[in-house]
Simulated scan of single mutants.
Amino acid sequence: MSVLQMLREPSYLANKEVASVQNANCVVMVPPKEFKFNAETAADNEFQNQVSLTDSIVRLQAMTEFDAMVATLRAEGVQVVVFDYPESKCETPDAVFPNNWFSTTANGEFFTFPMACENRRQEVRPAALVEALTAAGRTVAKQDSLESYLDVNAHLESTGVMVIDHINQTIYAALSQRCDREVLEDYAERIGYQKVVSFQTALPSGNPIYHTNVMMAIGERFCVICDEVIPEFERRFVLKSLAKDKQIISISIEQMNQFCGNILQLETASGERVIAMSQSAYDAFSSAQRAQLASHGKLLAFDVSTIENIGGGSVRCMLGEVFLPKRGL
Rank of each mutant, 00 (worst) to 15 (best):
F199P: 01
R236M: 06
C117S: 11
A106C: 06
Q48Y: 13
I167Q: 10
E123Q: 10
S198E: 13
G313H: 09
V152R: 01
R74Y: 02
M1S: 15
E91A: 12
F285G: 00
G261N: 00
F47E: 07
R290S: 00
R190E: 08
T170M: 08
A43C: 03
S52V: 07
R190K: 11
D245L: 05
V161W: 00
R8F: 04
M29C: 08
V51P: 05
R125T: 14
A217V: 03
L184E: 00
E34P: 05
K36E: 14
E234D: 10
V82K: 06
V196R: 01
E131Y: 11
Q279E: 15
A188N: 08
L60D: 03
P114C: 09
Q169C: 10
G271V: 02
G137T: 07
A284Y: 13
C317Y: 05
D180F: 01
E234A: 02
P31R: 10
L7R: 05
G320Q: 06
A276E: 02
S158F: 05
M63E: 15
T104D: 11
S287L: 14
V30D: 02
E91K: 15
V304H: 03
S280G: 04
R138E: 02
A116Q: 12
R178L: 07
I230G: 01
E123D: 15
E321C: 09
C226I: 02
Y193C: 10
Y85L: 14
E308N: 14
I248L: 13
K195Q: 14
G328Y: 08
A291R: 06
F35D: 01
T139A: 13
K16W: 06
N107L: 09
C26I: 02
Q247M: 15
L175P: 06
M256R: 00
A173S: 15
R59L: 08
V18R: 15
A19F: 09
L133F: 10
I57S: 07
V196H: 01
S11W: 07
A269C: 14
V3F: 06
E232S: 13
E65D: 14
S158Q: 11
F97M: 14
A42M: 05
N262T: 09
L146A: 06
I307V: 13
V80L: 06
Y85S: 11
E76R: 09
K16L: 08
A132R: 08
Q5D: 12
V51A: 02
A141R: 12
R181H: 11
G261A: 07
A132S: 14
L133E: 12
I249T: 01
N168T: 03
A291Q: 06
I310P: 04
D227G: 09
V322N: 05
Q122C: 11
S176T: 12
G77F: 05
A62D: 00
C26T: 15
E147A: 05
I225Y: 01
T201K: 08
V96K: 00
